[in-house]
Design a protein around this nucleic acid. Structure first.
Lengths: 234, 234
DNA sequence: GTTGGTATAATTGTATACAATCATACGAGT
DNA sequence: ACTCGTATGATTGTATACAATTATACCAAC
C-alpha cells in the first residue's frame, strides 16, 4: 500500500489478489449489502466462488476501514456509509487536500508540474467540447498528481482512501457539465498557486475546491445520488 | 470499528481477537521488525503461537494501514514508519484535530463538556504535583473526549488511528514536565473556545496545540525518541 | 568461467477439516 | 402457561492439507 501507482491500483482491482475485498467493498458502497445486514462467510464465499479464507481476510480489511463491524464469534455486520459520513469525509478531505497543495508547492517536480499543466489544458479543451468521460478521467488524474507531488507517503495514502471512498458520489456530480467547468477553473487556480510557489494560496484554493465540490453535491441532492444505498439516515 | 468506545478498544487489544494484529503492529512500530524485513507467515505464526490463518488476516490489515507491503506470491515486507512519516501525521492530525474542535463546538453534549472541564482541572492539579503518569492518561482522555464530541464517526475513527500511530512518540515527549504543563494550558484554551461556542477559535487552538506538540517533539529530538526503531531515514 | 535450464525447496494462495462459541428449539418441571 | 435447562444446529475461529508460484541450487553445454 506504500508506494503503489495508479496502474497497480487498477490491476489490483481486477487481478485475483484483492478481488474479493474490492467486490465486497463495492457491494457495500453500492448498497447491495444493506446497513446492519449480517454477512456470512460461506454465503459471500459461494457468491464469489471462493472459500471462507479469502472472505475472512477481506472482512478484516473492511472492518479496519469501518465499513463492517465484526463481533467476535457472532458475525460481520454492515456499517454502511451514511449521507453524513460522505459530508464529513468531504470536509476532512478539504483540509488534507489543502495540506497536500501546500506541500506540493515546495515538493513538486518539474515533470509533475508539466503534467499538471497539461492536465488542465486538456480538461479545458474537453470541457468546451462536453466530453464528460475524459473530464472525469482528467479530474481524477489531477488529484492523483497532487497527491504524488506533495511528497508524503502518509498524506498520499490517506487522500487516496478518501478519494476512493467518495468516488462513486463524485462521479455523478461531475457528470454535470456546469460543475465540471468550474472544477477545472479551480484546478487551474491550485496549479497556478503551486507554480507561483504561494503555499498559502495553494492550500486555500485546494480547500475551497473540495468545499465547492461538496456544496455542489449537496445542492444537487446528495440523497438522490445515493438513492437505494441505505435505509436509515442519521 | 464504527462506534467502539475506549473500553472496547483496550480489551480488544488484549483479548484474543486482534491479538495477532496488534502484536505484529507493535513489533513494527517498535522496530522489532525492521524496515524492508520480510515477514514470513509461518515464522510469525510460531512466534505468536498461532497458525498462518490469523497471521495472514493481520497482514491484510497491516497492508491496508500501509505498515507492510504485500507482493502477491512473494511476501510481506515491512514499510516501517520514518521520522518524516511521524512529522507528516502530526501535520495531518493538526488539521483534523482542528476540524474536530470546530465540530465539537456545536455538537458537544453537556456531559462531555463537564468531563472535559473536569479533565483539565485534574490535569492542572497533577501538573502542579508532577504526576506524569496521570497527566499522560488525562491527556489521552482529553483527546478522546474531543473525538467523541465532534459527533462524526468518520473523523473520530481517523483521529483515533493517527493518535494511536504517534502514541509511542508522544508518550516520551509528554514525560517532559515543561511540555505537559503547556499542553494542559492549550487544552484549556480549546475547551474554553468550545464552551464559548467560538468554532473558529476552537479550531485554531486545536490546530496550534498539535503543531506545538510537534515542534516540541522535534526540538527535543524526534530521532532520539525514535532511536533503534529503524535504520534508514528519508 | 559463464550461461541456461531443470529440479528441488521454500513460500504464498486457497480449500477444507476440526474446535469453539453462539443461537435456537424443544421439553421437563413447576 | 411459563421458565429454565439441555440438546441441536449454525456460524465463527483456528489449524492443517493441498495447489500454485517463486526462489535457489545444481548440472550440463558452450
Amino acid at each position: 500500500m506504500a508506494n503503489y501507482d495508479v496502474k497497480n491500483e487498477v490491476t489490483d482491482k481486477y487481478s485475483l489478489r484483492g478481488r474479493v475485498y474490492h467486490k465486497i467493498r463495492d457491494n457495500i458502497l453500492n448498497g447491495v449489502y444493506k446497513e446492519n445486514e449480517e454477512l456470512k462467510e460461506v454465503a459471500i464465499g459461494e457468491e464469489l466462488g471462493v472459500s471462507r479464507t479469502p472472505v475472512r481476510e477481506a472482512f478484516r480489511q473492511l472492518e479496519l476501514e469501518g465499513l463492517i463491524q465484526i463481533i467476535p464469534n457472532k458475525g460481520a455486520y454492515v456499517t454502511g456509509i451514511t449521507v453524513k459520513d460522505v459530508q464529513d469525509i468531504y470536509m476532512m478531505r478539504s483540509k488534507l487536500e489543502g495540506l497536500a497543495a501546500r506541500w506540493a508547492t515546495t515538493n513538486i517536480t518539474e515533470a509533475q508540474m508539466e503534467e499538471m499543466e497539461e492536465n488542465i489544458y486538456l480538461s479545458e479543451f474537453h470541457a468546451s467540447k462536453g466530453h464528460l468521460e475524459q473530464i472525469a478521467t482528467l479530474d481524477n488524474r489531477f488529484h492523483e498528481i497532487l497527491y504524488e507531488a506533495c511528497n508524503s507517503k502518509m498524506l498520499e495514502h490517506q487522500l487516496r482512501d478518501f478519494h476512493e471512498y467518495v468516488l462513486r458520489v463524485r462521479k455523478r456530480t461531475l457528470s454535470q457539465f456546469k460543475r465540471s467547468s468550474e472544477s477545472t477553473k479551480e484546478h487551474r487556480e491550485i496549479m497556478e498557486a503551486i507554480k507561483a510557489g504561494d503555499a498559502d494560496r495553494a492550500e486555500e484554493a485546494a480547500n475551497r475546491h473540495i468545499v465547492n465540490a461538496y456544496d455542489n453535491m449537496v445542492k444537487n441532492g446528495l440523497k438522490e445520488a445515493y438513492e437505494g444505498t441505505k435505509k436509515g439516515e442519521e
